[in-house]
Design a protein around this nucleic acid. Structure first.
Length: 352
DNA sequence: AACCCGGGGTT
DNA sequence: AACCCAGGGTT
């Protein structure tokens, strides 16, 4: 392995970052709350996807106080389509904690900030370094990829032990007085140069420091165990329209998949027959039983799950709905938060 | 340590 | 179709 010339590496990396860094909305901010929101949104999510959500979120919740005081449903609505909705619920919980227990000031110590809901090792380090210039490691997938190549580390980056090793490495090589820029520079490098496939080594500002490039093994790193393929679940969803052109929807449970989001009612059933969905529709009102018609299919791929949804339409009088269910007009549907899979179902209503 | 939890982009 | 993810919580 190459021995890293730390000072030279830091200078090459930071010089490149100073010159080439992308102009991103949260890089124009110093408010720790805003840095925090951006880091939560950026978990498992690309910059280009996050930007419009971030801008909209800041318009709706400009300060920590605004977010803390907001209704959870409004927060979820601002997160609609971004995925991993526990991020939004945890952020909301944590922001209220900061309002009530820290006088509205985002904690600036590792000990306190890690206590906040949804703030793990990565986000703690990211907020501390970027907002407060604290030399704490912020190790995400990008950083692990860059370091695994820089030092030819063949550990499986999916393992917890590997992450600890990378955090320790960052503590050794971080530019103490420029922690914010250093951490962002490593992530930026991973995002635009040291990419997962076909890294742009010829454009890399720290190529001369890189062990993987010297040995020609950059395409073999990082090492990562393959994930299991997602399992498929067959659903039949019911778009039930009452005599006042309102649609039956329901709120999902408080925990688990897509918690607290709204959806069209569905049953889990793979059979080709329509009897089960007709019986399901009949539960909501005697008048709808004979009008259940197969409409079309929606397929939605999650990271760990595939939904194959057969969508059925029915009309009639709806007089037996539960407390978690509502009848909403087309306009009212827009105010509620739906997972993308059910937005696809809703979209078809516009194409009539 | 293994599993759960979304969604979109790239190749 | 297979691959990639700017992670954290729960069990």
């Amino acid at each position: 392995m190459k021995i890293l010339d730390k000072k030279s590496f830091q200078q090459d990396l930071l010089d490149w970052y100073d010159k080439e860094k992308r102009d991103l909305p949260w890089r124009r901010e110093t408010d720790p709350y805003r840095i925090w929101v951006s880091e939560i949104m950026l978990q498992q999510t690309k910059v280009d996807t996050v930007i419009p959500y971030y801008n909209n979120f800041m318009e709706k919740f400009p300060t920590l106080q605004d977010l803390a005081d907001a209704d959870e449903d409004k927060v979820l609505k601002a997160w609609e389509g971004l995925g991993y909705y526990s991020r939004a619920r945890n952020l909301h919980t944590a922001v209220k904690e900061v309002r009530d227990e820290y006088k509205g000031k985002v904690p600036d110590t590792e000990e306190d900030i890690k206590k906040l809901q949804g703030v793990g090792p990565y986000t703690a380090g990211a907020v501390l370094s970027i907002a407060y210039n604290v030399p704490a490691p912020a190790v995400d997938g990008n950083v692990m990829r860059v370091l695994s190549r820089l030092f030819t580390i063949y550990d499986d980056i999916g393992k917890a032990a590997a992450k600890n090793k990378f955090e320790q490495l960052i503590r050794e090589i971080i530019a103490e007085n420029r922690a914010s820029d250093f951490n962002q520079a490593v992530m930026e490098l991973g995002a635009v140069i040291c990419t997962p496939t076909s890294p742009a080594c010829l454009l890399c500002p720290v190529q001369k420091h890189c062990s993987a490039k010297e040995e020609g093994v950059q395409d073999l790193l990082p090492v990562k165990a393959k994930k299991k393929p997602p399992r498929t679940v067959h659903l039949k969803a019911l778009v039930l329209q009452d005599e006042n052109d309102r649609f039956l929807v329901e709120k999902r449970p408080d925990t688990g998949l897509l918690a607290k989001l709204w959806q069209f009612p569905y049953i889990e059933a793979a059979e080709e027959t329509d009897e089960d969905i007709a019986a399901f529709a009949a539960e909501f009102g005697a008048a709808v039983e004979e009008e259940v018609n197969y409409y079309y299919d929606v397929k939605h791929v999650f990271s760990h799950l595939v939904w194959e949804i057969k969508v059925y339409r029915a009309e009639g009088k709806v007089d037996n709905i539960g407390s978690h269910q509502r009848l909403l007009t087309k306009d009212e549907l827009k105010e509620f938060t739906f997972p993308v899979s059910h937005q696809k179902i809703m979209q078809s209503l516009e194409e009539e």
